[in-house]
Computed example of a mutant assay.
Amino acid sequence: MIPDLVALVGATLFAGAALYITLVEHPARMGLEDGPLLAQWQPSYKRALPIQASLAILGGAAGCLAWYVHREWQWLAGSLFLLANWPFTMLVIMPTNKRLMAMQPQHAGPESRDLLRRWANLHGVRSALGSAASLLFVWAFFVTR
Protein backbone atom coordinates (compact mmCIF):
# COMPACT_ATOMS: atom_id res chain seq x y z
CA MET A 1 0.00 0.00 0.00
CA ILE A 2 2.92 2.39 0.54
CA PRO A 3 3.95 2.39 -3.15
CA ASP A 4 0.31 3.10 -4.04
CA LEU A 5 0.19 6.16 -1.82
CA VAL A 6 3.62 7.41 -2.88
CA ALA A 7 2.65 7.09 -6.55
CA LEU A 8 -0.67 8.84 -6.01
CA VAL A 9 0.75 11.66 -3.90
CA GLY A 10 3.76 12.12 -6.20
CA ALA A 11 1.59 12.30 -9.31
CA THR A 12 -0.96 14.64 -7.79
CA LEU A 13 1.73 16.97 -6.44
CA PHE A 14 3.41 16.98 -9.85
CA ALA A 15 0.11 17.63 -11.64
CA GLY A 16 -0.87 20.32 -9.14
CA ALA A 17 2.42 22.16 -9.56
CA ALA A 18 2.32 21.84 -13.34
CA LEU A 19 -1.29 23.01 -13.53
CA TYR A 20 -0.56 25.95 -11.24
CA ILE A 21 2.29 27.04 -13.49
CA THR A 22 0.23 26.53 -16.66
CA LEU A 23 -3.02 28.10 -15.48
CA VAL A 24 -1.92 30.74 -12.96
CA GLU A 25 1.76 31.64 -12.72
CA HIS A 26 2.75 31.80 -16.37
CA PRO A 27 -0.35 33.67 -17.60
CA ALA A 28 0.19 36.22 -14.82
CA ARG A 29 3.85 36.72 -15.69
CA MET A 30 2.98 37.13 -19.38
CA GLY A 31 1.40 40.45 -18.37
CA LEU A 32 4.85 41.83 -17.54
CA GLU A 33 7.07 43.81 -19.89
CA ASP A 34 9.62 41.71 -21.81
CA GLY A 35 12.61 42.27 -19.49
CA PRO A 36 10.82 41.59 -16.19
CA LEU A 37 8.99 38.68 -17.82
CA LEU A 38 12.24 36.92 -18.65
CA ALA A 39 13.81 37.96 -15.35
CA GLN A 40 10.93 36.35 -13.46
CA TRP A 41 10.80 33.17 -15.58
CA GLN A 42 14.50 32.31 -15.25
CA PRO A 43 14.71 31.85 -11.46
CA SER A 44 11.22 30.34 -11.36
CA TYR A 45 12.32 27.69 -13.86
CA LYS A 46 15.49 26.94 -11.88
CA ARG A 47 13.50 26.44 -8.68
CA ALA A 48 10.72 24.35 -10.24
CA LEU A 49 13.00 21.99 -12.17
CA PRO A 50 14.32 19.86 -9.29
CA ILE A 51 10.92 19.72 -7.59
CA GLN A 52 8.99 18.59 -10.65
CA ALA A 53 11.73 16.24 -11.84
CA SER A 54 11.88 14.54 -8.44
CA LEU A 55 8.11 14.18 -8.22
CA ALA A 56 7.95 12.63 -11.69
CA ILE A 57 10.63 10.08 -10.87
CA LEU A 58 9.31 9.29 -7.39
CA GLY A 59 5.70 8.95 -8.51
CA GLY A 60 6.62 7.03 -11.65
CA ALA A 61 8.88 4.57 -9.84
CA ALA A 62 6.33 4.02 -7.07
CA GLY A 63 3.64 3.48 -9.69
CA CYS A 64 5.78 0.82 -11.35
CA LEU A 65 6.23 -0.88 -7.99
CA ALA A 66 2.47 -0.71 -7.36
CA TRP A 67 1.89 -2.27 -10.78
CA TYR A 68 4.35 -5.07 -9.91
CA VAL A 69 2.47 -5.73 -6.67
CA HIS A 70 -1.12 -5.43 -7.93
CA ARG A 71 -0.79 -6.21 -11.67
CA GLU A 72 -3.40 -3.59 -12.54
CA TRP A 73 -2.65 -1.88 -15.87
CA GLN A 74 -3.65 1.56 -14.55
CA TRP A 75 -0.57 1.67 -12.32
CA LEU A 76 1.73 0.99 -15.25
CA ALA A 77 -0.07 3.38 -17.60
CA GLY A 78 0.00 6.16 -15.00
CA SER A 79 3.70 5.56 -14.42
CA LEU A 80 4.42 5.77 -18.13
CA PHE A 81 2.50 9.06 -18.42
CA LEU A 82 4.32 10.52 -15.42
CA LEU A 83 7.76 9.30 -16.51
CA ALA A 84 7.11 10.53 -20.07
CA ASN A 85 7.69 14.02 -18.69
CA TRP A 86 11.42 13.30 -18.61
CA PRO A 87 12.04 12.53 -22.29
CA PHE A 88 9.46 15.13 -23.34
CA THR A 89 11.23 17.78 -21.29
CA MET A 90 14.73 16.77 -22.37
CA LEU A 91 13.97 16.36 -26.07
CA VAL A 92 11.20 18.87 -26.74
CA ILE A 93 11.19 21.60 -24.08
CA MET A 94 14.89 21.78 -23.21
CA PRO A 95 16.01 23.55 -26.43
CA THR A 96 13.55 26.36 -25.66
CA ASN A 97 14.62 26.42 -22.00
CA LYS A 98 18.28 26.71 -22.95
CA ARG A 99 17.62 29.60 -25.32
CA LEU A 100 15.61 31.42 -22.65
CA MET A 101 18.24 30.81 -19.97
CA ALA A 102 20.97 32.16 -22.26
CA MET A 103 19.16 35.48 -22.77
CA GLN A 104 19.83 38.53 -20.66
CA PRO A 105 16.68 40.24 -19.31
CA GLN A 106 17.95 43.64 -20.45
CA HIS A 107 18.02 42.30 -24.02
CA ALA A 108 14.57 40.70 -23.86
CA GLY A 109 12.09 41.54 -26.58
CA PRO A 110 9.74 39.95 -29.11
CA GLU A 111 11.97 36.87 -29.47
CA SER A 112 12.00 36.08 -25.74
CA ARG A 113 8.24 36.72 -25.48
CA ASP A 114 7.59 34.37 -28.43
CA LEU A 115 9.79 31.71 -26.82
CA LEU A 116 7.90 32.07 -23.55
CA ARG A 117 4.58 31.64 -25.39
CA ARG A 118 6.00 28.50 -26.98
CA TRP A 119 7.26 27.34 -23.59
CA ALA A 120 3.77 27.78 -22.12
CA ASN A 121 2.25 25.55 -24.78
CA LEU A 122 4.91 22.91 -24.24
CA HIS A 123 4.50 23.08 -20.48
CA GLY A 124 0.80 22.46 -20.97
CA VAL A 125 1.72 19.00 -22.24
CA ARG A 126 3.51 18.35 -18.95
CA SER A 127 0.35 19.40 -17.11
CA ALA A 128 -1.72 17.00 -19.22
CA LEU A 129 0.69 14.10 -18.67
CA GLY A 130 0.73 14.68 -14.90
CA SER A 131 -3.06 15.00 -14.77
CA ALA A 132 -3.54 11.80 -16.78
CA ALA A 133 -1.15 9.97 -14.46
CA SER A 134 -3.01 11.24 -11.40
CA LEU A 135 -6.38 10.14 -12.75
CA LEU A 136 -5.03 6.71 -13.64
CA PHE A 137 -3.49 6.33 -10.18
CA VAL A 138 -6.78 7.32 -8.50
CA TRP A 139 -8.56 4.73 -10.64
CA ALA A 140 -5.95 2.10 -9.80
CA PHE A 141 -6.08 2.98 -6.12
CA PHE A 142 -9.83 2.25 -6.01
CA VAL A 143 -9.58 -0.85 -8.20
CA THR A 144 -7.00 -2.40 -5.86
CA ARG A 145 -9.02 -1.74 -2.70
Rank of each mutant, 00 (worst) to 15 (best):
residue 123 H to W: 02
residue 117 R to P: 00
residue 4 D to S: 12
residue 140 A to Y: 06
residue 95 P to N: 09
residue 113 R to F: 12
residue 58 L to A: 15
residue 89 T to W: 06
residue 84 A to L: 08
residue 28 A to R: 14
residue 85 N to M: 14
residue 10 G to V: 10
residue 133 A to E: 02
residue 25 E to T: 01
residue 115 L to I: 03
residue 21 I to K: 00
residue 126 R to N: 03
residue 19 L to N: 05
residue 145 R to C: 08
residue 24 V to G: 07
residue 89 T to Y: 11
residue 121 N to E: 01
residue 55 L to G: 01
residue 141 F to E: 02
residue 32 L to H: 11
residue 60 G to H: 13
residue 11 A to G: 04
residue 56 A to V: 01
residue 142 F to M: 06
residue 106 Q to F: 03
residue 45 Y to R: 01
residue 46 K to A: 15
residue 4 D to I: 03
residue 60 G to R: 11
residue 40 Q to H: 11
residue 48 A to T: 14
residue 106 Q to W: 02
residue 16 G to L: 12
residue 110 P to K: 06
residue 23 L to P: 02
residue 44 S to W: 05
residue 46 K to N: 14
residue 64 C to G: 15
residue 127 S to I: 05
residue 91 L to Y: 10
residue 118 R to A: 12
residue 71 R to P: 00
residue 76 L to E: 10
residue 12 T to P: 07
residue 8 L to W: 09
residue 90 M to H: 11
residue 118 R to P: 10
residue 121 N to S: 02
residue 28 A to H: 11
residue 59 G to N: 08
residue 27 P to Q: 09
residue 137 F to N: 07
residue 120 A to L: 12
residue 37 L to T: 02
residue 35 G to N: 04
residue 123 H to G: 02
residue 89 T to V: 10
residue 85 N to G: 15
residue 57 I to K: 03
residue 122 L to R: 12
residue 116 L to C: 09
residue 97 N to F: 01
residue 131 S to E: 01
residue 24 V to C: 07
residue 100 L to P: 11
residue 118 R to H: 13
residue 110 P to A: 13
residue 47 R to N: 14
residue 142 F to R: 07
residue 136 L to N: 02
residue 95 P to G: 06
residue 65 L to R: 09
residue 63 G to Y: 05
residue 118 R to G: 10
residue 135 L to D: 01
residue 67 W to S: 02
residue 114 D to F: 00
residue 131 S to R: 03
residue 23 L to A: 14
residue 105 P to W: 07
residue 139 W to A: 04
residue 57 I to R: 00
residue 125 V to C: 12
residue 119 W to N: 05
residue 132 A to E: 04
residue 124 G to Q: 06
residue 121 N to C: 02
residue 144 T to Y: 00
residue 100 L to Q: 03
residue 133 A to C: 01
residue 17 A to I: 05
residue 101 M to E: 15
residue 100 L to C: 10
residue 15 A to F: 03
residue 103 M to R: 09
residue 4 D to Y: 05
residue 34 D to H: 12
residue 17 A to P: 00
residue 103 M to F: 09
residue 142 F to C: 03
residue 135 L to H: 02
residue 10 G to C: 11
residue 6 V to Y: 06
residue 78 G to H: 04
residue 128 A to Q: 08
residue 5 L to Y: 11
residue 45 Y to A: 08
residue 5 L to C: 04
residue 32 L to R: 11
residue 16 G to H: 11
residue 123 H to F: 05
residue 127 S to R: 06
residue 23 L to S: 09
residue 103 M to V: 00
residue 5 L to G: 08
residue 53 A to V: 12
residue 77 A to T: 04
residue 123 H to R: 00
residue 94 M to R: 13
residue 19 L to W: 11
residue 43 P to Y: 14
residue 13 L to C: 10
residue 137 F to A: 03
residue 101 M to I: 08
residue 22 T to A: 15
residue 3 P to Q: 01
residue 123 H to S: 03
residue 66 A to W: 07
residue 68 Y to F: 15
residue 140 A to Q: 06
residue 96 T to K: 02
residue 46 K to D: 12
residue 119 W to S: 09
residue 63 G to N: 12
residue 20 Y to A: 10
residue 34 D to G: 01
residue 126 R to H: 03
residue 66 A to T: 08
residue 8 L to I: 12
residue 100 L to R: 06
residue 38 L to N: 01
residue 7 A to D: 03
residue 92 V to L: 11
residue 105 P to G: 09
residue 52 Q to W: 00
residue 91 L to I: 07
residue 65 L to K: 10
residue 36 P to K: 07
residue 18 A to F: 07
residue 107 H to Y: 12
residue 134 S to L: 13
residue 2 I to S: 04
residue 121 N to V: 07
residue 71 R to Y: 08
